[in-house]
Design a protein around this nucleic acid. Structure first.
Lengths: 124, 124
DNA sequence: AACAATAGTTACTTCGCCGTAACAATCGAA
DNA sequence: TTCGATTGTTACGGCGAAGTAACTATTGTT
């Protein structure tokens, strides 16, 4: 009961770990962190057009959250037209290997998972 | 542009990796996998009462999804009252270290993240 | 004078995750 | 015969995440 105890001691639903992980569970955070981790520094429209299927609104919202959590730095250049560059902070870079580990696991296992899903729905 | 190319080549929003990871991003999957990973085998009510703040419905739904993805095995005993045991599959166990890595990262960084959030909201 | 480029913001709407509460099935026990 | 134990299922509804489209701001360009 070690894990359960820890979880309940941490306040169950108010568990701080979950509070942190919940943010990463949204639709775009992980992808943006991984991309920024690989590309280094990117401008807003570079991310926007690069990802392609993210809306302008969700990109700003997600970047704002990542910035608030100290995972991404936003560097504004006082130019017209505007120029803003995004990159990972040290904290963001420390998260990167974990997300890549997850992504690699998903890539390695998605075949089997798809097979399981089909088998499961077929059996029901 | 390596990551972006891969992402777009994989179909952007239909990216298989994301399809797999989206499931883990829900409210309960990660927690259940981690708990099952530590406890080994648990019955339905053991999980239910243990977690405490999960509804009966969400526990069944989440377990069903994890079972469909081949991450959890469900073992039914032909008894009255019913007895069902849940445990991780080999695939589920292979995911465990990645989730624990994430959880440990979150635990190690939540202080700093909270500080960043406060600083950020104060600055706006 | 209108337009292009960049980086957003805002209002409106839709979608689906999740919670709540009641119900289902089955047998033994009081 | 009603209750309790265990593992669910179902109907209903709220709320927040996310999409769409229009609008803003600023300056140089045509």
């Amino acid at each position: 009961m070690e894990t359960l105890k820890k979880y309940r001691a941490a306040g169950g639903g108010n568990c701080a770990v979950r509070n942190v992980l919940d943010r990463l569970g949204d639709k775009w955070s992980m992808l943006i962190i991984i991309i920024l981790g690989h590309e280094g520094t990117m401008r807003f429209n570079q991310l926007h057009h690069g990802i392609g299927d993210i809306s302008q609104k969700m990109l700003t919202v997600t970047l704002k959250i990542l910035e608030a959590d100290g995972l991404v730095v936003r560097k504004v250049y006082a130019e017209i037209p505007p120029k803003v560059e995004y990159s990972l902070t040290e904290r963001g870079r420390s998260l990167l290997p974990h997300l890549e580990g997850l992504a690699q696991w998903a890539e390695a296992n998605m075949q089997g998972i798809y097979a399981s899903r089909e088998k499961y729905t077929a059996g029901v």
